[in-house]
Write a protein that binds this DNA or RNA. Structure first.
Lengths: 176, 176
DNA sequence: GTTTCATATGTCTAAAATGACATATGAAAT
DNA sequence: ATTTCATATGTCATTTTAGACATATGAAAC
């Protein structure tokens, strides 16, 4: 039941292909949802069987043919029902870096700084992409409230992470 | 390979039971790792078979007998190897609330506010528990750098989330 | 006395998710 | 010419995870 509503939510915005969904997860939703193309294609098939979505085959000259999915009435109804009626499940997070952080006491200062630099670079890249995306949709005149809120969340999340890293570095230096 | 190092990390601090691990995940690591007792017990068995941990049976008068696990030399070696050598994998996050956020445009203002209030309450509770824990380990004179850093992360994470919610509420009111 | 709660450990089935394998087009780069 | 890249869709085996079922103790609440 997990990925289903993420997919319905994406498709509700505008018709998209499975390939589009993959890039949306990677580029625009990285800080609150993740999946792989194998799971996405499988779930799209299942959802079409259950009449929540349909697709239109688009033959392209340039690149391979694609299936553009859109919501059925039932799909939209189910999405809204889920959003309003289903009790909110706690977020599921698996952040390996924080696990590594817990064992800093058994690592050397150099090793710790190396790990922190690695994660800082990762987070910088994510933040840069998120800001890029924000600029892009603003320049397009897009004022979708869902997009505005989630992009702001992404920026705040990454900034929090980076500030915490900076604080952690200072903390470790002071302790040493 | 996922939960393994989370478990090794926890056990490296001090010997614990499977039951302890369950509560640690729930109370102290909720904002960066999650699992269930069925998975934890299974993985502990597997890790013991592979000689990464061992247990000592403790017979208690009051409550049921328990298995207290500790790291073997091999377990500690593998944990450090993982931390230093294995490339950092991106965090995997599944936050349903942000999915719900993306479809705010097809919900009513009342429904949106209800959802936001729900998540604000959830996050308040998490923050309260994290702060309680921080007070507790400070009062115990615990100055484990791993704990200090992760608890600070938890507080910053929850505060970021709550501030974003507040901002979102304002944003939605202004738009209406 | 009976239920509920915290402690404590396990199994089992089903669902979800990962990662590898597999294929195909057209454009661009080397 | 050949490789690489972006686009595009799929399968399959294995691993991971979730959630239900199962049991047991002692203390506390009702």
């Amino acid at each position: 039941m997990s990925i289903r509503y993420a997919l319905l939510g994406i498709i509700s915005k505008k018709p998209v292909t499975g390939y589009d969904v993959v890039t949306i997860f990677k580029q625009k939703m990285i800080y609150f949802w993740s999946s792989t193309h194998s799971q996405i294609y499988k779930e799209l098939h299942k959802m079409e069987e259950e009449d929540l979505i349909t697709h239109q085959l688009v033959i392209q000259g340039t690149s391979p043919n694609k299936k553009v999915y859109s919501l059925t009435d039932q799909g939209k109804k189910d999405l809204i029902r889920w959003a309003i009626e289903e009790p909110l499940k706690p977020a599921k997070i698996k952040d390996e870096f924080l696990i590594k952080t817990t064992i800093f006491p058994i690592l050397s200062e150099e090793e710790i700084n190396q790990l922190l630099d690695e994660v800082i670079e990762r987070e910088h890249n994510i933040l840069a992409k998120t800001k890029e995306w924000k600029e892009h949709f603003h320049s397009q005149g897009d004022s979708d409230i869902g997009t505005i809120l989630t992009v702001e969340y992404g920026i705040r999340y990454s900034e929090m992470y980076l500030e915490w890293c900076k604080w952690a570095k200072q903390m470790i230096q002071d302790k040493a």
